[in-house]
Amino acid sequence: MTITIQDVKYSYPSHPERLVLDIPSWSISEEKKTFLYGPSGCGKSTLLSALSGLIKTTGNLMVFGQSLSDMSSEQRDIFRAKNIGFVFQQFNLISYLNAIDNIKLASGFGPNHRNETIEREIKILLDELNISEDEWSEPARNLSIGQQQRIAIARALINKPQLLIADEPTSSLDQVNRDIFMALLMSLVDQHKITLLLVSHDMSLAAHFNNIVSLDKINFAGKHS
């Protein structure tokens, strides 16, 4: 299993009485493409933070057989850099760095951070994602949203993660770019044999996935009362 959750509960320190996550049981098997949907405020982003180890939950949260609940903060940071790639709706890149630096920065925290061929690998990846050479050295803020999203995929893949988490990655894209982005994402996920967890409220994307989950069905936070 890629992800296994048992009795995971979480509430923010500012409102300890209000549970945001209350998931008795849930799992995702390897190389599955999971589409997670739900209304705003149902805990999607909190669940992604928990899966990436940015927040510590109670219960048992296992990713690739390792319990994030038992890891220290530092161990979770290393685990995240090594195993999980992220693509967001926006703020995917550091705006004042160019494409190469953004990707190199991410690789710096990964397992191959001393790899001398990293720059070559980055260029190959950018080539694969159809990003022209002129744009490699442009600060991210000068690129279109579509270009930024593709560079974000390259950044997410540079450390060869086993799990890719995408949080509303197409929300800022128009129809054409959204289709191009999804096609690219799916082909890369297949090619690199990565487990994909995509969160969106756009149900039209569901067709690309073989596992469709409503967060409402697995998260019981606020429902017991």
Binding site: S73, D77, I78, F86
Partner: peptide, 14 residues
């Protein structure tokens, strides 16, 4: 804020 969050997400320790 977003930049710091992004750094945390890609594995930057505190």
């Amino acid at each position: 804020r977003n930049e710091i969050y992004l750094l945390r997400v890609i594995g930057a320790p505190p």
